[in-house]
């Protein structure tokens, strides 16, 4: 390699690489190492304690409660979001509605809003006294159904899941629409001539042909859910009432920044990481099908 070229290549790649190594990879590795220490973060005293943090974790009831809540979100939010997204995508692509662009633009819009804005907005929708949900229920004579949605342990998880779905549906809908667009239209024409119903067409043409896209979105979404539940939970319920909506990330955050248990917090983090990895593999295995070419 001539010297001139070499200088050029490294001038181009090194700055980004250094930034990445120092502020992405290093913290990542350090987090794993930290989970084996007992450390308050402020003092210089760091004691290596092996797997003690993990032992504590296994016997911490709040960890398991948070874990269950994480699983709730990981299951409910993707299923509902992707179900709706798929339904809307099929409706928009298969029926030739004139106002198609309007729906596409509208449904996608919540996705560009800040999660903080969405969380605050939905806190008001669920507000017990002047929220629009309760006042709507009263207006149509269903006062019995009103709740302090974010303040009751029975409703809080569902109330948190609603805005998560609301903000994500349009994003996945647009992806599925693009995937459906790639299917040759003559396949549907043939199916139509053969007398296949809309549902059969979906089951036998649409679904198998966009399966690979669906599979990737599931994996991406699972990771996304882990990241964004923090903002919703923190702003809308702060883990309450009585840890009923605590998730691992909010618990980790409290352990680190309120209680100063940095080592323990990172053990929770590694636990989270393991869950993400396991879920990714599970969903990959679960959704494995022969790829269909057309």
């Amino acid at each position: 390699m001539n010297r001139n070229l070499k200088t050029f290549l490294w001038t181009c790649t090194l700055p980004a690489l250094v930034l990445f190594l120092v502020f992405d990879l290093y913290p990542f590795v350090r987090a794993i190492l930290m989970s084996f220490y007992s450390w308050s973060g402020v003092s210089d005293v760091k004691t290596f304690i092996g797997f003690d943090n993990y032992r504590t974790l296994l016997h911490d009831p709040i960890v398991w409660k948070s874990f269950k809540n994480n699983l709730f979100f990981l299951l409910v939010v993707p299923v509902v979001t992707m179900g709706l997204a798929m339904l809307f995508a099929v409706m928009l692509m298969r029926s030739k509605l004139k106002e198609r662009l309007f729906y596409r633009t509208t449904f996608f819009f919540p996705n560009v809003l800040a999660l903080v804005v969405i969380s605050i907005l939905w806190s008001f929708i669920f507000h017990p006294t002047f929220g629009i949900l309760n006042s709507m229920l009263k207006g149509i004579g269903l006062s019995g159904l009103t709740h302090a949605w974010l303040g009751e342990s029975g409703t809080v998880l569902w109330a948190l899941a609603a805005p998560m779905v609301w903000q994500a549906v349009g994003y996945y809908m647009v992806i599925y629409m693009a995937a459906i667009e790639g299917i040759p239209p003559d396949m549907y024409e043939v199916a139509h001539l053969e007398g296949a119903s809309q549902f059969k067409q979906f089951q036998l043409i649409t679904l198998p042909l966009i399966w690979s896209v669906l599979r990737i979105t599931v994996v991406f979404f699972l990771i996304g859910v882990f990241n964004f539940t923090f903002v919703f939970v923190r702003i809308m319920s702060d883990g309450g009432p009585d840890h009923a909506s605590e998730v691992l990330m909010t618990y980790l955050y409290g352990q680190a920044f309120s209680n100063g248990n940095f080592g323990y917090a990172m053990a929770i983090g590694v636990f989270m990481l393991l869950i993400t990895v396991v879920l990714t593999f599970l969903s990959e295995a679960f959704m494995k099908r022969e790829a269909i070419q057309y």
Binding site: D24, Y26, P27, F28, R30, A31, M34, I223, F226, N227, F230, M249, L252, Y253, A256, F262, A265, M266, G269, M272, L273, T276, T280
Partner: peptide
């Protein structure tokens, strides 16, 4: 695939 949350503390 790195979760953002994981590296906040370090």
């Amino acid at each position: 695939f790195f979760p953002v949350a994981f590296k906040i503390v370090p």
